[in-house]
Design a protein around this nucleic acid. Sequence first.
DNA 1: CTGTTAGCGCATTCAT
DNA 2: ATGAATGCGCTAACAG
Lengths: 337, 337
Amino acid sequence: MPTMQDVANKAGVTLSTVSHALSGKRPISEETRARIQQAIDELGYHPNELARRLANKESKILGLFFPKYKTGLSEMQFEFVSAAIDAAEKEGYAILLWRSPKDVEALVNLTQQGLVDGVIFMEVRINDPWMIRLRESGFPFAMIGRTEDNTDIGFVDLDHTTAIEEAFDYLVGMGHKKIAYINYSPKLVNSGYGPAVFCSEGYQKAIRKYDLPIIYGECEPTTKDAYHLLQKLLSDHSDLTALVTPNEAGLPGLYQAIRDDGRDIPADFSVVSLASPLRAERLLPTLTTMDFPTDEMGKVGVEILIKFLRQKNMAPAQKILKSKLSIRQSSGPPPVK
Amino acid sequence: MPTMQDVANKAGVTLSTVSHALSGKRPISEETRARIQQAIDELGYHPNELARRLANKESKILGLFFPKYKTGLSEMQFEFVSAAIDAAEKEGYAILLWRSPKDVEALVNLTQQGLVDGVIFMEVRINDPWMIRLRESGFPFAMIGRTEDNTDIGFVDLDHTTAIEEAFDYLVGMGHKKIAYINYSPKLVNSGYGPAVFCSEGYQKAIRKYDLPIIYGECEPTTKDAYHLLQKLLSDHSDLTALVTPNEAGLPGLYQAIRDDGRDIPADFSVVSLASPLRAERLLPTLTTMDFPTDEMGKVGVEILIKFLRQKNMAPAQKILKSKLSIRQSSGPPPVK
DNA sequence: CTGTTAGCGCATTCAT
DNA sequence: ATGAATGCGCTAACAG
């Protein structure tokens, strides 16, 4: 690998001239610039990024903690990551993948290595001591999601509460009276998983607003669990005509339970889920959703972090995105008896 | 951020002593080692990884080109990535995500930056000029998948041919006579997408071996396309009792077409797909698969690359994994007429 | 067992 | 417009 010094020698100039020619940070005569360029071409020179970043005291790398693959939860995170790469690349950053470390101190150590300029978190819980500790350390980071106290922490999240509420608005508006709500798994609900908490609030609001009967269940992100849960709800409430869920992982099971109960979607039963549009199109009938803007969230999360990196004096941005209703084939008015 | 020099000063020793104490590359007396450790603790010192890697002439980072999210193709790649992270981390490497560059030269440039020690590719085509060019450049890389001429290129791939053949072995063994084969999309087939090519070979072998009628279709990785394709095949061949496909993205559509044709899975119709077990469990009825060992492939791909990095004189390893049959609820004997 | 010194490859502040 | 010199933070060969 040729170095900058090699280029300088070949072009008959000094190291610093080459450096400045490359960065454009000071005027270089056309003639020497040409000689330098020629030397670069002939040698096939490429700046060593490790050295450049060391000298710059900036790695231009963002760390991202990649959750273990667990059925259900992860498809959306895949979309986050995908969008995050694009957004980062646009700003000259790359994304480095890490597994979540064992404990908080290991996390802090990772950040102190100087390998990444900032980190991004997904899957944060409403009460997440890790985030508190990291804020305390002063290391720049941003969350896709949010905690209870987000003081001085940049994040992008979805307004889950309103999303669920609007799903009910829609179904009630269509004339549905008995609507089930299928939440995330007990484990997620109890651990304070943000979306589970906020979605539940939306459900509470809706049942109060419309004085709806509580037809509620929590289910694992598996087809089987979803199937059995809805089967039970359907047998307990034969007048059920619709359901709302943020737990998209169970959807195939929910669909199947409805069919096996002899009902047709959407003629006899309507389904509305909080989900990524990509997922919605892959089901049959296509799923009516409160859109989960995964692309936007991944993108904005990275942008918030990078903006903060550029002007550390400013407080990091915090954005709560709205979900919008996308009507597809899985929903319609309730059946007329 | 305290530096190694700060630690040395505080401990009353030289920089090099601290360095060696940390690396353990030469004996240090217990006493000074203790003083150094104390200084480290008091200062909260962490080695700067950028500097360390520059001096070592090794970034300990692996680049991975992350495909744009396209419905269907990507769920498995998500599992590749997940497994790759674990395997890399175990060997002290991290994974850096990049989008595929515009052209081959941009790719070569990226590798010459010294930011990554090697790169991993997914989604390689059977005839991929990029891989040829990269081999030519001498930069270390490995493929998850393979091309036509893999001389001196490390890779891990699946024996797709045998997988499809064995799917037919299984169904024929159960007594099925009319079996449809649903391939990847025309675009993938025609572009020489490895899995499409090798799976087709398996299909050819099977129809010859068992003298089966050709009931064949190519379909986009979408629910709708799969639905319409199978609907047509079912109306053209009312005696169809089973299907084999490597194109798991269309599965929900295939299931639906079968149901809408008034058939039950597996009583009236059997389905076998080449797919990741994770995906298989999420369908209902659970899917009989020729297992796609995504975890193993992601892991082995990284291991092959790292092993090569360690001993560059050896030729890189090349592994073709076998798929194994996992019988689940979607398949059984053909209906008795 | 410890210290001295010279890199790793590039950025940048002084000079001229 | 160009050059010389110093530093980024760490490793490692050489010396004692």
